[in-house]
């Protein structure tokens, strides 16, 4: 156990959590608007493959991230078309989206296996990075890590304090009432779905461009599902999403370190521990007698049709 450096661990967990934070915060916005998109995994992997291809072709990691966001958003547009225009069932559409995304990404990525993408540089903080401990933990990351935290803060602030956020929550709470007041339920939901898709794509691109960094089939390995679970167990609250994602990332990194350090726990248990512990902690957090269960947007997963 002695081989684990806490500064390195925290620094690594912040990086490991980025894809989940981005995907989960996107899905949180989608769900607060009353739409349940189970296609996060599919949108992430589309983001991963599109981001990878574009960054390799252009030689720029930044272009890759933009491409990842566009790829995720493009796939989510399909979901928006199915559920908001054709009023298809959201659960089935979301699951189909994941399967479709996994298949399509595998097809697109065939000729890109084994290539290294351009590197995403660390943000230069100058002397700040030399501060012992803090420098290693806070000031030695690439820009996406900081952006993920900013995204959480911005989402929290928009939902809480702005009119846009209020309307978004209102649509998720009761689409009939929102419609009666004259808000464009479908348009707001489509925009939320696109935002969710772009964020999931960005998260996926981070996996293929920074975390791994290369392209293999099924590279997201269930991160989209964890992001979905985190949204629910975080009671649809942005800061809790951050906590949940850091918890998951932290345990993932820790168990890897433990494996490397040769801990006498079977590898299988270590590998399943992040999933198990994250879900367990979040379930306990949200199972209190308080109003956590009531935080679910009341119209979540229901299709809206303005015929009444």
């Amino acid at each position: 156990m002695m081989g684990i450096d806490p500064a390195l661990l925290i620094s690594a967990l912040m990086v490991a959590s980025v894809p989940i934070i981005l995907a989960a915060i996107g899905e949180l916005v989608v769900e607060r608007a009353g739409v349940l998109n189970l296609g996060v995994e599919g949108m992430m992997i589309m983001g991963a493959v599109c981001g990878f291809i574009l960054s390799v072709q252009s030689g720029s990691a930044f272009v890759g991230f933009v491409g990842g966001a566009l790829g995720g958003a493009a796939l989510s547009l399909l979901f928006a078309l199915l559920t908001q225009v054709f009023l298809a069932n959201q659960v089935a559409s979301g699951l189909a989206l994941t399967l479709f995304g996994l298949g399509l990404s595998s097809l697109l990525g065939q000729s890109f296996v084994g290539i290294r993408p351009p590197a995403t540089g660390v943000v230069p903080f100058g002397p700040l990075a030399d501060i012992p401990f803090l420098g290693r933990v806070l000031f030695s990351h690439d820009w996406v890590v900081y952006m993920s935290v900013v995204a959480v803060a911005a989402t929290w602030w928009v939902l809480k304090a702005t009119r846009t956020g209020l309307i978004l929550r209102a649509v998720g709470e009761s689409h009939d009432a929102a419609h009666a007041l004259g808000y464009k339920v479908r348009r707001i939901r489509v925009l939320a779905i696109l935002f969710g898709g772009a964020m999931a794509g960005l998260g996926g691109a981070y996996i293929s461009l920074v975390r791994v960094p290369q392209w293999t089939d099924g590279i997201t390995a269930g991160a989209g599902w964890i992001a979905l679970a985190i949204v629910v167990f975080a009671s649809w609250k942005p800061w809790r999403v951050l906590i949940g994602a850091y918890l998951f990332g932290g345990i993932s990194v820790l168990q890897l370190n433990l494996q490397a350090a040769g801990a006498r726990i079977p590898v299988e248990y270590l590998s399943m521990s992040p999933y198990l512990i994250t879900i367990l902690v979040l379930v306990i957090m949200s199972s209190g007698k308080g109003k956590a269960a009531l935080n679910a947007p009341a119209s979540l997963g229901q299709n809206f049709h303005a015929s009444r």
Partner: peptide, 30 residues
């Protein structure tokens, strides 16, 4: 409805057009 409200027409609905999980001020603002 926006145009109707701008012309000075307001409506109290039979089935309330309220949002249970939002507070009174937020409901009014909407």
């Amino acid at each position: 409805p926006r145009a109707a409200r701008a012309s000075g027409v307001a409506m109290v609905f039979q089935h309330f057009s309220l949002f249970e999980a939002l507070n009174v001020a937020e409901n009014v603002a909407l």
